[in-house]
């Protein structure tokens, strides 16, 4: 077991979604906040993949953006290799830290500037971090990166719209790798892609991880994909961690009722005859989360305690779950 590279401690993020000042005064309403992420803690080991799984409104993308510094946390701390990132990544230290992590986004078309040639897109991190590099060396490096992700150096002169979705994601990966980072946050990197292309990209990401010893935080709504990629998994529901643990254990013995429900909802591709269980209800609006355990309105095991008291993560077996019923041994 290796040391954690990233440590997320009691992370919370609140968004102000109030109507404008004048409307508030006229309608005599107060400010409105959404707790997109509430008290989330986990750690990611060097060279491994930690997956965050959740549906819409679970706060998974917010966590991704918090980690790379696109958002600042309301509470809590993110510690990267022993150094706290909570001061919003400023000053001289910042550049040294920044070059060690990168992000890959969901929609490769939106994450590549449509007016830039591929060479310039991939070279952007080099311009930022390798100030001493001359133009020739930079272009050689771009050619190397394009080859690495399965494109050809000649593709560098093209614009993003001249590529297919999968190729665009390869370009985004090449850009992420340009400054040789150790740690990459991947926000739904394949959910905009077709299945056969998804397989290519997932394989590529695994190969690169093996080759460069990369550490991934992998965000997805797709349990099958996560199963293929992750060493450890955190299941998010309405901004809180419902369950966290080693991938194998979590898939073998899901503890939290929400995790079980998610697993049951996975379509039966091999037609083993298992029927998808009909799950009741839908995710409540994050604007008005239910009191107590956020999952209680849909949970078959909910009792009065679940409707009042928010459960904390407690260790069960090889993982930890935030569930009163599990803690009390009712399930």
């Amino acid at each position: 077991m290796s040391e954690p590279l990233l440590d997320v401690r009691h992370l919370s993020r609140r968004f102000d979604v109030s109507p404008p000042w004048l409307n508030r005064k006229l309608e005599r309403t107060g400010k409105v906040y959404v707790n997109a992420v509430k008290d989330v803690s986990f750690s990611v080991k060097r060279g491994e993949t930690f997956a965050l799984v959740g549906e819409s409104g679970s706060g998974k993308t917010t966590i991704a953006r918090l980690i790379v510094g696109l958002l600042e946390p309301t509470e809590g701390e993110i510690v990267f290799d022993g150094q706290s990132l909570s001061r919003g990544l400023q000053g001289r230290e910042a550049r040294r830290l920044r070059r060690r992590f990168q992000m890959i986004f969901q929609d490769p078309l939106a994450s590549l500037n449509p007016r830039w040639r591929v060479t310039d897109i991939i070279a952007e991190p080099l311009r930022a971090f390798e100030r001493g590099m001359n133009d020739r060396a930079r272009r050689l490096r771009v050619g190397e990166l394009l080859t690495l992700v399965g494109l050809s150096p000649e593709d560098g002169v093209k614009f993003p719209h001249q590529f297919s979705g999968g190729q665009r994601q390869r370009i985004a990966i090449a850009r992420a790798l340009a400054a040789k980072p150790e740690f990459i946050v991947c926000d739904e990197p394949t959910s905009a892609l077709d299945v056969s292309v998804q397989a290519q990209i997932l394989n590529l990401m695994k190969d690169l991880q093996d080759e460069f010893g990369l550490t991934y935080v992998f965000i997805s709504h797709n349990l099958q994909v996560v199963r293929h990629m992750a060493n450890e998994i955190g299941v998010l529901y309405l901004g809180r961690l419902a369950e966290v643990g080693e991938s194998e254990a979590l898939f073998e013995h899901p503890r939290h009722p929400y995790t079980r429900m998610l697993l049951d909802a996975v379509p039966d591709i091999d037609m083993t005859g298992r029927r998808r269980k009909k799950v009741e209800g839908e995710i409540p609006s994050p604007l008005r989360p239910p009191p107590g355990c956020p999952f209680n309105p849909r949970c078959p095991f909910a009792n009065d305690r679940c409707r009042i008291e928010v459960p904390g993560l407690t260790p069960v077996g090889l993982q930890a779950a935030a569930c009163h019923a599990v803690e009390e041994g009712r399930i």
Binding site: A199, L202, S247
Partner: peptide
């Protein structure tokens, strides 16, 4: 072959 399945883990997927 490209569809990831729950039963198998951490292996390379078959891809076209």
């Amino acid at each position: 072959g490209a569809i990831p399945r729950l039963g198998e883990s951490l292996e390379r997927l078959v891809h076209i």
